[in-house]
Design a protein around this nucleic acid. Structure first.
Length: 453
RNA sequence: GGCGACGUGGCGGAAUGGCUUACGCAGCGGCCUGCAAAGCCGUUUAUCCGAGUUCGAUUCUCGGCGUCGCCUCCA
């Protein structure tokens, strides 16, 4: 059974399932107003690994992840660029899923859009008003935070503590609110802004009511797991939860948050600091699997620095795994080595300890290579099957890279012929040529293997 | 000011009250190879500082130093 750190209780505990055999997960998706950055990539890859692993363990995974396609930031950009806001959201969503696909992230089972749920949000807000948990002001509708008994569960601070410290940020809309921590559920629109009708006036959704409505609608009360980046813990997730609690609904049973991507100085990559790196650049410049490999070799709750050096290391590590698959491509498959797979699962079950899991994969590759050298085909085959099974479970696709053109393959044959004739000058010339074309050339007694580097 | 996380080798990064301190990358030596590459074997470098608990601490406790995060924009 998977044990996972739970932000609410600050402890690692078993992921309890509401229904045996089925997992319901809500992942906070992007607000579509710009290109995806490294932080988005980390979050989606982390939860993709979780999802694949749960599926691998035989669970039926339902993963709902929203697209927030109405938000102040979208409106701001539309105004700034003089474009229709829907053009921005559609384009950004396409870019998003294209990038995720290149990252090897499976599409969530459900991709609800905020704009499809505005009516449901209006209904929810009306209920909150009926329950005296929300009130109307001259600029919108607010949730009254003191009406939520355990507000601060995720922040790990009481409302008083949050207020007393103060911070150095101004309280938005303080003049209209009953309490400084109250937050907007509905914002009345200005002329020319996108708006929807409501009993209180035309406007748009406020603080991520869509996540509340959509998670409860698609997954139901008391769904198993709510996920997102650590920066969403407070206030985003706290406020989602506050809405559900104020509705009298049971919300997520378990809260999971992944760590930040940090810059060279160890500072969080933050939109406000302007130091976010574009995910698309990373995907363009390196093996798209490299980021996933790097993330797998780091625990999901630790901060991670993404730099030339550790991306290069991840690429090299992938090269070793690909080379192994190429080297053993002619070995018949057999059942996976049981002990290796069990140890892998034990590592993953321990709060998704992917660095330990990867260590087991590398170790299995080493043992399999030794077995190949020793001519122990049975051991090599079982370990090879285990490696493939484990890498599939974490979403790393290995490639023997042997889908090469016929003329390249012919050069390999020529190289072997030259070596057999001890015409080493010709052999070396062919090898140099292939290497200069970017191929990895591995000669062996069984013949030369050529694969893409 | 409140709350929290973290500090491990050349780099990244796990784990653990003691057995040779994982794993990846890089380096070095060897085997293999016509020479390489790949692979395998061996190997170099580490637990921020101080005190305490303990037979023994990198691990637990306290203090210090340092870094980072949250306190209503953010994956």
């Amino acid at each position: 059974m998977l044990n996972l750190y739970d932000t609410a209780t600050r402890s690692v505990k078993p992921l309890a399932l509401r229904e045996p055999g089925r997992v319901s997960i809500y992942l906070c998706g992007p607000t579509v107003y710009g290109p995806p950055h490294l932080g988005h990539g980390r979050a989606t890859v982390v939860y993709d690994i979780l999802r694949r692993y749960l599926s691998y363990r035989g669970l039926d995974v339902r993963l709902a992840s929203n697209i927030t396609d109405i938000d102040d930031k979208i409106i701001d950009r539309a105004n700034r660029e003089g474009r229709p806001w829907t053009e921005i959201t559609h384009k950004c969503e396409n870019v998003w899923f294209d990038a995720m696909s290149r990252l090897g992230v499976l599409r969530p089972t459900d991709v609800p859009h905020a704009t499809e749920y505005v009516d449901a949000m209006v209904t929810m807000i009306a209920t909150l008003i009926d329950r005296d948990a929300a009130y109307v002001t001259d600029d919108g509708v607010y949730l009254h935070v003191p009406a939520v008994p355990d507000y601060g569960l995720l922040a790990h601070q009481s409302l008083d503590e949050m207020m007393s410290g103060g911070g150095d940020r101004e309280v938005l809309g303080a003049e209209n609110k009953k309490h400084p921590a109250d937050f907007a559920l509905w914002k009345f629109s200005k002329p020319d802004e996108p708006s929807w009708d409501s009993p209180w006036g035309a406007g748009r959704p406020g603080w991520h009511s869509e996540c509340v409505v959509m998670s409860l609608e698609l997954l139901g009360e008391g769904f198993d797991l709510h996920c997102g980046g650590a920066d969403l813990r407070f206030p985003h997730h706290e406020n989602e939860r506050a809405q559900a609690v104020a509705l009298g609904k049971t919300f997520a049973n378990h809260w999971m948050h992944n760590g930040f991507v940090v810059d060279t100085e160890g500072e969080k990559m933050s939109k406000s600091l302007g130091n976010v790196l574009n995910l698309l650049d990373l995907l363009d410049q390196y093996d798209p699997r490299a980021y996933r490999m790097l993330l797998l070799q780091t625990h999901y709750r630790s901060p991670i620095r993404v730099g030339q050096d550790n991306i290069d290391a991840a690429v090299s590590a992938l090269g070793g795994l690909d080379g192994f698959i190429a080297r053993t491509s002619r070995i018949d498959s057999s059942a996976a080595d049981v002990e290796t797979v069990e140890r892998f699962c034990a590592a993953m079950d321990n709060d998704l300890d992917t660095p330990a899991a990867m260590a087991l994969i590398f170790d299995a590759v080493r043992r399999a290579n030794s077995a190949v050298d020793a001519g122990d085909v049975a051991t090599a085959s079982a370990l090879r099957a285990a490696v493939l099974e484990m890498t599939v479970a974490v979403g790393i696709e290995l490639s023997g890279g042997q889908d090469i053109d016929a003329d390249i393959a012919a050069k390999g044959v020529a190289l072997d012929a030259a070596r057999a004739a001890k015409d080493f000058a010709t052999a070396d010339a062919i090898r140099d040529e292939l290497q200069s074309l970017g191929y990895v050339v591995e000669t062996s007694k069984e013949g030369t293997r050529i694969r893409r580097g």
